[in-house]
Nucleic acid binder design. Structure first.
Lengths: 105, 105
DNA sequence: CGGAATCCCTTGCGATACTG
DNA sequence: CAGTATCGCAAGGGATTCCG
């Protein structure tokens, strides 16, 4: 039997990645639209505000789940978001979560 | 491509089940010790207080993820906790989460 | 266009004490 | 034994405004 310590060790990290109201949703959108831009992401994430999107992207970037390219040195700027390799490894997990949710009311 | 709506529909429910500081850990313990009692659960969940355990169990029960048997009509009481069928269907998901966490520091 | 700064409000978390 | 009742704090979420 797996001990509680081994368990909570692995799981708490994932829950940190998924924690919060928006991050998982944002990940999914970026996955489906690699290179998506800030304002597109904002439009696709219904109900989110600037600050919450910024904070979520900040956190995910610092966790190396996503990365972004800044293009241009004067306005209008461009910023394109991608999943990293680590981020892509989360995709099957997200799909499993989604499937469970759809099958259990 | 899957739409954002289909996605958020399924996932938000799962994240609700897993939300909070203790619920996932409690689920894992109950899974490993079917029929576990309140105070045993409290001892195994390091750092939890009465009220947080009560609240977590309440939520999970109302979501039909766990169930409990109350035994006896006068003190000392017994209360035994189990995973429901729905709760058991979450086990593979929990294991996937744990595996990812262990493999991604 | 892609953010950051500020301020506020709500929610979750928890210590302590008590009860059937 | 298995909870409940209070009260308080801290963190997360968000509206608004402003900036390079």
């Amino acid at each position: 039997m797996q001990t509680t310590d081994e368990w909570s060790c692995g799981v708490s990290k994932v829950m940190d990645v998924f924690a919060g109201k928006w991050k998982l949703n944002i990940l999914w959108i970026i996955y489906n639209e690699e290179g998506i831009r800030f304002n597109q992401l904002k439009n696709r994430t219904v109900g989110i505000t600037n600050i919450m999107l910024t904070r979520s992207l900040e956190t995910l970037t610092s966790e190396k789940i996503i990365s972004n390219n800044l293009i241009g040195n004067k306005p209008p700027f461009k910023s394109e978001y991608y999943l990293t390799t680590k981020g892509k490894s989360l995709v099957p997990l997200m799909q499993s979560l989604n499937d469970w949710g759809k099958n259990n009311l």
